[in-house]
Design a protein around this nucleic acid. Structure first.
Lengths: 336, 336
DNA sequence: TTCATGATCCAAAACGTTTTGGAAAGTGTA
DNA sequence: TACACTTTCCAAAACGTTTTGGATCATGAA
């Protein structure tokens, strides 16, 4: 059902029907009412493609989901997606999702999305320190908003958890509990957040006068398997740590499993702390101490920021750092 | 960069440029090469909105994600999404995602999506026995594919796990292990799959000459909390069951937690069986016996089916029932 | 020479919308 | 009456693509 048909039914011009429905003042109230009624009756819904073409804007934002995430990271992404999607829907913007394997295909997908005018802006997540996606987007002048920061020449719009502060606070708390041998299972170093987490950890160590010990530092993928292998190595060392700070809840859950397998009591012999506060963190046995991130809320803010960006807001006003408070549960306690 | 600009650069008509790029035979190889080169050089990417408008097809499929799923069900949906998305991307179709709260807004979102020509077809998941979404889509003649079945007057295209067979097999296995008091924590009865699961359970009971006992049947939401409350009630009864068959891994994990809290040993005193084989099922303590569903694979098939449907395939050829084999892990064993 | 044939190319219409720049008719004022 | 203004409407262009239905020209056959 098109505008033309509605216009013909009413013996009006397409122009008038269009303007009646869009609330222009140059159409009389009586015809406007007639048009509304007719449109309603025949079930007229504007063709968004035609609208978009005419307006020169797609009324949509794109997001890529890297399809080979480890399973245990998934809850993070879906939460983000739901947060973003719901808010965008309210703003009458569509969300176009591409699932592509990480790698060159990913960049290509962004290109298709925006240069093919399918999306006006994109959202990217899990930023790397040097992120070719961001370089590309900046180079092309494509509006985007990131979940996570990056090292870029020009500032970008982002929302991110203040992981540095959070990790400093958690480390300090562990020190307060008497721990001196605190290991960090960090994220892959190409991720921006990896540096933040490590920096926070080192900040607290330094404040307490504890030297950073490379043997107490491991790097691994942000999933459960990464947690198991890293924890296995750290806990098998000559002088094993009494506390394990993990970049991620998934990693922490993996560590928890290894501890159980090795017969190490948590938290009596070993404290474990995660990050994200995934729903399953509270369900773990023992319940996981972790730093909380409101992922769905971040998604909603991300959507708001995309709208603001499309509305011409300055990038400087679109940079948010969110608190990640420490939630102490059963997996952490005083040093043995 | 538009077709027009490329044409002007080359002193050719828009028609010729278009036809050159689209491989029509009525353009000479030499000009085709020139056009290709020029398009490449200036970074021409066709405007998909214009293409879509002209072709009368959106080249996209829609999917709704009901935004208030319980957290523990999420992995299911993301897996499905990734499976669908990846395959659609390969078919050069976009995936438009809407996140809306369940309820009337959901139907509205479908309407917007397809009547606004934003999507050519839609995918729906978690079908209900009488599903107003399906009625709507059939009524409007909108192509769709469902993950899950429904009771409809006309046949629909679907892919679904054969839960009835799976539950029959699992129940039979429990009986084989000596269980006679087997409880079922079923899904909300408006879901189509709820009936299937219960039917499979009852089939096996009947085969073994065991009467169905309403006191051993509970219904609950498909999430972890549902599992805890239902299990609490069932296990607190006068003659508690020795085995718990759950509609879902999430429910099973909730039940597992309750058993632990009540000091009931699993599997020595109580066997627990789930459904889905979520990644976390294998990680549970004890590892969960469950029926496996290849969710990502189902997503990929779903995408294939949508393409087939858009290509004019008959609905009768687009109905698939998938095996859900029993994966026996640590949470089930002989009856006490 | 004439005519059909093929090989290349192109103008224009169409998809459904929004917007521009009036036109027509009515109303009040001088 | 003549004029300006307001109200209400509309034709046509535009967005970027695909497709239809030729047009043009060279080639070879009759």
């Amino acid at each position: 059902m098109t505008l033309k048909r509605v216009a013909e039914d009413l013996n009006l011009s397409i122009t008038t029907v269009s303007r009646a429905l869009n609330g222009y003042p140059d159409v009389s109230e009586s015809t406007r009412e007639k048009v509304r009624e007719a449109a309603q009756r025949v079930g007229y819904v504007p063709n968004r493609l035609a609208q978009a073409l005419q307006r020169g804007t797609a009324e949509a934002v794109g997001i890529i989901l890297p399809s080979q995430f480890g399973h245990f990271e998934d809850p993070f992404f879906l939460e983000l997606l739901v947060g973003v999607g719901e808010r965008l829907h309210n703003a009458n913007l569509d969300l176009v999702v591409c699932a592509v394997p990480e790698g060159p295909a990913e960049l290509d997908a962004y290109k298709r999305l925006v240069e093919g005018r399918r999306a006006d802006a994109v959202i990217i997540a899990r930023t790397r320190r040097h992120d070719e996606r961001i370089d590309y987007l900046i180079g092309r002048g494509i509006p985007f908003v990131a979940h996570g920061r990056a090292e870029t020449a020009t500032p970008i719009a982002f929302i991110d958890a203040d992981a540095r502060t959070a990790f400093r606070r958690s480390t300090r708390r562990l020190i307060e509990l008497g721990h001196r041998h605190i290991a960090l299972i960090g994220a892959p170093e190409e991720l921006f957040t990896a540096g933040e987490r490590r920096a926070g950890y080192e900040d607290a160590l330094q404040e307490a006068g504890i030297a950073f010990d490379p043997d107490l530092y491991a790097v691994t993928k942000l999933n459960e398997r990464g947690g198991t292998t890293a924890a296995e190595r750290l806990l098998g060392a000559a002088r094993p740590p009494t506390a394990l700070l993990c970049a991620n809840d998934s990693i922490a859950l993996g560590a928890l499993r290894i501890a159980r397998r090795l017969g190490i009591a948590v938290p009596e012999e070993l404290s474990i702390v995660g990050f994200d506060d995934l729903p399953m963190a509270a369900q773990a046995e023992p319940a996981l101490t972790t730093m909380r991130q409101d992922i769905r809320g971040a998604g909603a803010r991300l959507a708001d920021m995309v709208c603001a960006r499309l509305g011409g807001a300055a990038i400087a006003d679109l940079q948010e750092l969110l608190e990640a408070p420490l939630i102490e549960r059963e997996s952490s306690g005083p040093a043995p």
